[in-house]
């Protein structure tokens, strides 16, 4: 177990694509049970950071460890099996199958047979977990609808259901309220917080929307041009002159 209840540690990670340095020497430590947010203007490297943590990209330099285990450079499926799940900024579900089937296929990923020969004929019973998730996100009535026929807001929730169905202990949320109306955003933010608490999840959140971040985060890190320029509580970030200059660009939130 890692020190001080640290779940995810990103240590001096850099990532460059050719000559472009997307991340430079970024370090952060996410503690058990907290909501940690990463904010920054467009192009700040937030998504790259997520892609490095979730396994889409290997870090060019530095280390990423999850519960004391090095995960930098592992494949996405391997990282997911260790208990890290990710939602996508652009909705990324299975469009032409039903909502129920979407969640089922995600949920059975953690069944004992998964990846074994017996999975060729057995059909694991994951209905209880599927029901729980659909109920929690208000999708129970839409169970038999094709995922592509859901409203935008419903698809955002399905996106989170898929990630949660793999029973992660760390959930990476990439702008979970992207494209939602302000009203929907408020409801979604509360729901995410509630579900995370109930499941004892640690959340790492990327957000654009300051109101979302300020409301639910325990700590916030700010990226600017691929470098971390600040880290602290929402209150400290709100008053940090460097952040105001780089990101808020004018003194008020």
């Amino acid at each position: 177990m890692a020190r001080d209840g640290v779940v995810l540690e990103v240590a001096a990670v850099s990532k460059s694509f050719g000559a472009l340095a997307a991340l430079t020497d970024v370090s952060l430590a996410v503690r058990e049970g907290e909501v940690f947010s990463v904010i920054g203007p467009n192009g700040a490297g937030k998504s790259t950071l997520f892609n490095v943590v979730s396994g889409l990209h290997a870090p060019s330099r530095g280390r990423v460890s999850f519960r004391g285990r090095e995960i930098g450079g592992l494949a996405p499926e391997a990282i997911n099996r260790l208990g890290v799940a990710k939602t996508f900024q652009i909705t990324n579900v299975f469009p032409e199958i039903s909502v129920g089937e979407n969640v089922r296929v995600a949920a059975q990923s953690r069944s004992a047979d998964s990846g074994r020969l017996a999975s060729l004929w057995r059909r694991p019973d994951v209905e209880v977990r599927v029901d729980e998730l659909l109920d929690a996100f208000g999708l129970a009535a839409r169970r038999d609808a094709l995922a592509e026929n859901l409203s935008h807001g419903e698809q955002r929730y399905l996106e989170i259901c898929l990630a949660l169905a793999t029973e992660p202990s760390l959930l990476l949320l990439d702008e979970p309220t992207a494209g939602m109306t302000p009203g929907e955003t408020k409801g979604a933010t509360q729901l995410i917080r509630h579900v995370a608490r109930a499941r004892g999840l640690t959340l790492l959140l990327i957000e654009h929307d300051m109101s979302v971040v300020m409301g639910i985060s325990d700590r916030i890190a700010v990226l600017h041009f691929g470098e971390k320029i600040a880290e602290g509580t929402p209150e400290a970030i709100r008053n940090d002159p460097k952040v105001i200059e780089a990101y808020l660009g004018g003194g008020e939130d």
Partner: peptide, 14 residues
């Protein structure tokens, strides 16, 4: 078939 990338992020070795 529906979304190969997403299947990987759900833990499946595609």
């Amino acid at each position: 078939r529906e979304n190969e990338d997403r299947a990987r992020f759900l833990g499946y070795s595609v």
